[in-house]
Write a protein that binds this DNA or RNA. Structure first.
Lengths: 151, 151
DNA sequence: GGCTTTTAGGTGTCCGTGCAACGTCTTAAG
DNA sequence: CTTAAGACGTTGCACGGACACCTAAAAGCC
């Protein structure tokens, strides 16, 4: 592989990167598909509901939420539009900052989340965790921590 | 986190999955952006060129290629359309199977790949490999191998 | 207090992708 | 041989997301 020599990457290093990519895409697709067929809920929507459920008072500023869900702000706007249309999330004005908006999880949204969660967790277990040994999870965690400097 | 109890996932397990997701998305976005500004080449296109360059005679059947680049067949059709329009790839009929088409890397495509490769490799090094210790790469590789059963 | 600069969120527009359906060709069954 | 079943690649369609730009409000500056 002549391409690699110049920059000093070994074949193994490149392979590792590709495998990471493949694994993540495969798992994500699986989750997306399962959630869609079982609950008519895209993965991105599930993520939003989950983040809101964990947030204090089940609400988050749009901006904060966008950061947590790995979505651009405009992307989040549309996604919240859809969730609001379906009654799973509501928008509420922010008291001390007239620019701000909260996305708030509704009761219907919370119910939907509870419904879909077994599917989500089962997917992660079967497609990801089960394939790793128990002891390895700690290792992965340590390594990923280095990659996730929240930069 | 009451949601987790039912399915028996620990908080750590869920966290690990989320971190993997974040890390992969972050790295992918970085690569995509760098390739785009420096070479006007999306990451998906780079992947196609790379796969073709590694293939015997620099050619692959559309179907095979779709599998390697993690794209649906229809998605690949459009991508190859674009690459063909830009002269980086050509389509060639398959001799013994009239249904089949080869995507073939052109000389221009090979040149473009060589141009862009330093950017690509540097991105992987700086955003991924450098953040892991040298010894850890082998570990990651072993774990990812379990996830990548080419299923 | 006016003035600029920064931040929050939304909109117009474009692009890339997946799914379902289609035409074409191959292969297996009778 | 004929016909049914399957595989390969493309196309119509709709959707989701990003980018650039816009307005409104807050924060900073003199």
């Amino acid at each position: 592989m002549t391409l690699l020599g110049d920059e000093g990457l070994t074949t193994e290093e490149l392979t590792v990167w590709r495998m990471l990519q493949r694994a993540q895409v495969r798992i994500t697709r699986y989750l997306e598909a399962e959630l869609l067929v079982a609950h008519d809920l895209p993965l991105a929507s599930y993520d939003v509901l989950m983040q809101l459920a964990e947030a204090p008072e089940r609400r988050l500023r749009m901006n904060d939420l966008a950061g947590r869900v790995l979505l651009s702000r405009s992307g989040l706007t549309r996604l919240i539009d859809r969730l609001q249309r379906d009654g799973l999330v509501a928008r509420e004005a922010c008291a001390n900052d007239a620019r701000g908006l909260f996305a708030v999880l509704t009761d219907a949204g919370a119910d939907r989340l509870v419904e879909a969660t077994p599917t989500y967790l089962h997917g992660i277990r079967s497609q990801f965790l089960d394939m790793l040994g128990q002891g390895e999870i700690g290792q992965v965690r340590a390594m990923l921590a280095k990659l996730d400097l929240t930069s």
